Simulated assay, not measured.
Amino acid sequence: MKSRITPIDFIRKNWLLVGILFCIIVAAIFPHLGSKEGPMRTEFTVKYVAVFVIFLISGLNIKTDSIFNTFRQYKLHLFIQCFTFIFVPYITTVFIKFLNLFSINSWVLKGLITVACMPPPVSSAVILTRAAQGNETASIFNSVLGSFLGILLTPLHLLNQLGSTTIIPIWATVVQLSTTVLLPLSIGQIALQMGFKGRKWPLNTVSQCALLFVIYTTFCDTFTTPEAGLSALDVIITVFSVLMLQIFLMIISFKVCGFVSKDFTPQDKVAVVFCSTHKSLTLGIPILRIMFHGYSHLSQISLPLLVYHPTQIILGGLVVPQLKDWVHSQRKYKALV
């Protein structure tokens, strides 16, 4: 007989998902506490504390040999970046042509294509990949690489898709990536080489708690964002469209990468699912504000990105347990073979 799963067992196995749902509820009740104007000063505590801690722990967990091995996985990196910057904008354009048949707000549709042109984030994809026991090193590499490529490719995409572009603050972006990603990774690697024993500390738990803090502040900003000019129908259609698009992209990325290369391991495929489909809110919102400054339709254009970011986190939390079990089953199968 199958053993009965108790609520405690469910929470223990899916505690990241439970934590995400808890953060959403608390953010809905106390949105101003974690908003940018709130007492937590999230413009500093998120970028320079929470994200710093996430990548410091990654640096402490990653073996130096795996970093050098990751540089050789050019097929994996090429697939993720091509999927991010070529396939996602293309399929979103096709999806928007379909949505045009239903007379959906044209500014919301422009917001969808803007989201598709964005680079990947540098935190959520990494943590979710680690939680699912995927290739964390590859996820870090491609998140950082995608962010740097986005400095050049995102404006070109926006020029091609919308006929308008913007100048991304290159120096500010490079400094931010260096201080919040590369610096803590380097510190972690130095500490590891000096004999730091990470097994004695609950590093993964601390890292996931830092991610939950980022998620909480993200939803606080979402709940405090004014929705001027948005109808209830606009919001519902946007949520549904973003959800369908993300589910489709996650399925396609998982299926197609297996056909592209037989060399991809289950851990590589987990990294592909998260890194190639996630989009950056941190870089996206400033771009939208620069591009559409003074537009009365800024709220409609921003809505898809504001919906996309929390949705990718919720979907990620839902699929992490399944992907983790799948990785384990593949390991057992290979061990038997």
Rank of each mutant, 00 (worst) to 15 (best):
M1G: 00
S3R: 14
I5L: 07
T6A: 04
I8Y: 06
D9S: 06
I11T: 04
K13I: 00
L21F: 15
C23W: 01
I24K: 08
I24P: 03
V26N: 09
V26A: 02
A27K: 03
I29D: 02
P31L: 06
G34P: 02
S35Q: 03
E37V: 00
G38S: 07
P39Q: 06
R41D: 04
T45R: 09
Y48L: 07
V49L: 07
I57M: 13
S58H: 07
G59T: 00
K63R: 08
N69E: 01
K75R: 14
L76R: 01
H77W: 11
H77R: 05
C82N: 04
I86G: 13
I86K: 15
P89S: 08
Y90S: 14
I91P: 00
T93K: 15
V94W: 14
I96T: 10
F98Q: 04
F98A: 00
N100Q: 14
L101G: 12
I104H: 10
N105M: 04
S106G: 10
L109W: 02
L109S: 02
G111K: 03
G111V: 06
G111N: 03
I113R: 15
V115N: 06
V115E: 04
C117A: 14
P120Y: 15
P120T: 13
A125P: 07
A131P: 00
A131W: 07
A131K: 09
Q133H: 13
A138E: 04
F141A: 14
V144H: 07
L145A: 04
S147Q: 08
S147L: 13
I151M: 07
H157I: 05
L158C: 08
N160Y: 15
S164T: 05
I168A: 13
I168S: 15
P169W: 10
W171P: 00
V174F: 12
V174I: 15
T179G: 10
T179D: 01
T180G: 08
V181F: 10
L183V: 02
S186K: 09
S186V: 11
I187L: 12
G188K: 05
I190L: 15
L192M: 12
G198N: 07
T205M: 11
V206P: 05
S207E: 11
S207M: 06
C209I: 04
C209M: 15
L212N: 11
L212D: 07
Y216Q: 04
T217G: 04
T217M: 05
F219C: 02
F219Q: 08
D221N: 13
F223S: 02
F223V: 01
P226G: 12
A228N: 09
A232Q: 12
L233C: 09
I236H: 14
V242H: 11
M250E: 09
I251L: 12
I252D: 02
S253I: 12
F254H: 12
D263S: 11
F264M: 08
Q267E: 07
D268C: 11
V270A: 05
A271Y: 02
A271E: 01
C275K: 06
S276H: 08
K279I: 06
S280L: 05
L281G: 03
I285T: 09
I287M: 12
R289E: 14
I290Y: 09
H293G: 07
G294E: 02
H297C: 03
H297Q: 10
L298F: 02
I301K: 01
S302K: 04
L305S: 06
L306W: 04
Q312R: 12
G316Y: 01
G317C: 11
P321E: 00
K324F: 03
W326D: 03
V327S: 06
H328I: 00
R331K: 06
K334W: 09
V337S: 14
V337I: 05
